[in-house]
Structures are given as structure tokens and as C-alpha cells.
Design a protein around this nucleic acid. Sequence first.
DNA 1: TGAATAGTGTCTCTTAGACATTATTGT
DNA 2: ACAATAATGTCTAAGAGACACTATTCA
Lengths: 222, 222
Amino acid sequence: MTPIICTVDIVLLTLRSNKLHVALLKREQEPFAGMFALPGGYVHSEQDRDVQDAAARVLLEKTGFVSPYLEQLATFSGPARDPRGWSVSVVYYALVPEEIILNQTSIKLLPVEGLKGLPFDHQHVVETAVARLRSKSTYSSLPVYLCEPLFTLPHLQEVYEAVLGEPINKVSFRRKMKVLAMVEAVDGVMEAGKANRPAKLYRLKKEFKNSLSLLNRAFNAG
Amino acid sequence: MTPIICTVDIVLLTLRSNKLHVALLKREQEPFAGMFALPGGYVHSEQDRDVQDAAARVLLEKTGFVSPYLEQLATFSGPARDPRGWSVSVVYYALVPEEIILNQTSIKLLPVEGLKGLPFDHQHVVETAVARLRSKSTYSSLPVYLCEPLFTLPHLQEVYEAVLGEPINKVSFRRKMKVLAMVEAVDGVMEAGKANRPAKLYRLKKEFKNSLSLLNRAFNAG
DNA sequence: TGAATAGTGTCTCTTAGACATTATTGT
DNA sequence: ACAATAATGTCTAAGAGACACTATTCA
């Protein structure tokens, strides 16, 4: 029996102009050389401590940065998804602010809405990642990873609204941020430059780096 | 480089005496021959259409039955978890009523609390599956798969309470069952034999076989 | 008839969303 | 002062939990 091909792929998501985008790279090698696809690569059993480690390594090699949030999404498999043969791809998803990606000219950002023409089963993989992000965002702190280290609450609300695709009541949003208790105001600094009352700047609390805070009620509980 | 070992394992969970139990099988072959472990096996690339298919096949081969609910849990990997070498195991979890398992004398049911001495990383895998079940049960219809095809609402509430490990308000529980809208009373049949008012019998609605219904508020929202 | 549990009506208290008001900046 | 948005106070309405009451069976 032919051996099973074992790879990792990364769905790197970010917000650009308040729309979710996915990061794609031009493939250097066959199959699908020249096409844009998710960053991915083989698991290196001599080098990687586990598949998560492989995903972090591939992301670093292909983009030059480390993502604070990197979570296993799911494993995709079958004989047809990769022309090289029966394959198993363990997929991770990462969330970063757009600014981190802008320095990387090799990365192409495409809106997740209306994606098509991706090689492998990458369209389905991206759809799964976006569904997971939306689902988790309804009751958790996940979207903060789409923000830069310092952000305002009005901006964070915009991020939530962009991810969820619907408006959120301002008072409720701020109440829930209090309940989640995973952001803290940074003393002394304020947003500036606009002709209105400046917003306080917040940051993710140390204890929530790499982790999430959960609600037991959705943001828009309806 | 040595090839990566690609396997599937199944965490088969059920309720016995209102406690969660996991199904283990005595291993026929090395490694760990003679020890009790999760049902598992190699992915057969000539035969399996994907890894989910492999998990269903392994479960059928080892237990003789098909589980209505079989969901991918996560993928576990690394050089140390399997003495044969660097391995990737895609793990699925299944929920069944105890009665299905009772006919299978080869299966050993152990309580998930206080499990120890399992081979591979199976203890960690079981803990992950139980955590997933508990988490999903707080806002979904998942626990119905631990019931037989016909069940009463008081029994279903007991099942939820056993899984969640805390009591649920009766009125709220029945209201949420109405909101979830995934069970329906079966006309004409009732539970019988007890010296009290008989309970109506319910069943999972057809459209929810293999799927879940979700709430946007937890059962015990506190 | 009494014991036991199923099933439902209803009250209260919490909390979400709507709306209004105050606060603080730049022009 | 005025425009603009931040931040918060407060009212109302929806929903959760508590409690009590009715319903239906067997002994």
C-alpha cells in the first residue's frame, strides 16, 4: 500500500476594510505550481515535536512571523484532495491584525466571501475556518486577536460586528466585555487626533495571551 | 525519513448508572498487547474514502455496530505517543445508549472519572473528548444521543444533569427543549409500570439525526 | 385514598436592548 | 460654541429560576 501523505495547512485570517480576508501564497512547486493556496507543508518527523509544532514552523518559514493565536481547526483527508495521492492534512487557523501581514509582500489577501478557484480542497477548508471563527466569536474573546496590541473598545466592537456580520448593542457589548474580563484599560494613553472625545486604549490581559475567555450567553442572544 | 504512522481512534462514550463511561477493548497485537485501549486502527488508503470513513469502519469492525453520532474530536501527534514511531491519530468520538454496548461482551466500560493506566496518550484523548462533550452539552442537543430511541423528558434531563454534573431547573429545561425543537412526543405511547403519572415518550426528530440543534444561551446560564 | 412523579401556571428577579444624557476632544 | 464620538445612566421588556398547583398512574 502506498504511504499516506501527511501535511499541515494554515488558514491565516485577518480583517481588511472591515472584511475578513485569508492569506494565500503562490505555490513554488507542483502540484498547482504558480497558483495561490493556503500556506502548508509536510510534517517533518525528524524535526517537529507534534503537528501543532509543524504548523507553527510552516507559518514562520512561509510568512516570517509567529501568530499568537494558532488553533487546530480539523483534519481533512481522502484520495482526491491532493493529486499526489491519499492525504491527511491537519489544518490550523491563525488570527492576526492586518498590519503584521502588510510587510509581507509575498502574501496575497483575498476576501473570504466569494472565494473560488483555490487548489486542493482549500475553499472548503477556508469555509470551515470562517464558520469556526464566527461560531466562537458569538460567545468568546476570540476576535481580539484580530486587533493590534492596543485598541479601543469602539474599534473592538467594529471587529466583532465585522466578524459576526451584524450590529451589536453598544451598552450590551461593553457590559459583556466587562464580564469577559480579558481586556484592561492602559493607564494614561488615549487615542488622539480626532475631533471628538478620545477613546481609552485597551490591551489583552497577560493571562489571556494564547487563550480565550468565554460567555455562557451569546453576544446577540436575541 | 521514516514514514508517519497514520491511525484513527474512537472515544466511545455512554452513560451507566448516570456516570459517563468510555468503551475500551483488549489489544490483540503489539504494542501494548493485552492491555485495554481505545478502539483504533490504521487508515486504509485503498479502502477508506476519508478518515471519517476509516473511523466508522474501525468502529464497526471492532464493536459490530454503527454509531448515529460520530464527530471528529481532534488530531493527536508526536514521536512519543506510539512506540512504533512518529504518529498522527485522528480521533473521533461517538455517543451511544448503554444498551447497545451491553451485547458486546468484548467491550469493557470504565468510568471516565479516575481513569488511569491507559496505553498511548489515550487518557489525555479521553479527557479531551469528555471536555468536548461537556462543553457542547451546555448549549446543544448533543446528549440525546446517549438516550435510546424513545425516552422521556425527565430521563433526558437526568442525562443532561449527569453529563453537566449539576442540577437543571425543570421548567427551564423543558422550555429549552421546546426552543431546541429537536425532539417530538410520540403519539399514543407512554412510559408505564410506575406508581405515578406516566411520562410521555419522545424521540429525536428525523431532521436531527446526525446533527445538532444549538441554543444561544447555556442551560445553566447562571 | 394516598404516594409518587409528570407536567404546567405564574411570580420574581436578572439581564439584554433601546434611548437619553453627560463627557471630552478638535476646529 | 459646535460637531463628533466616547462613555455611562436608566427605562422597558424578555427570559431564567423558584415555587406551587394540577394531572395521572399504581398500590
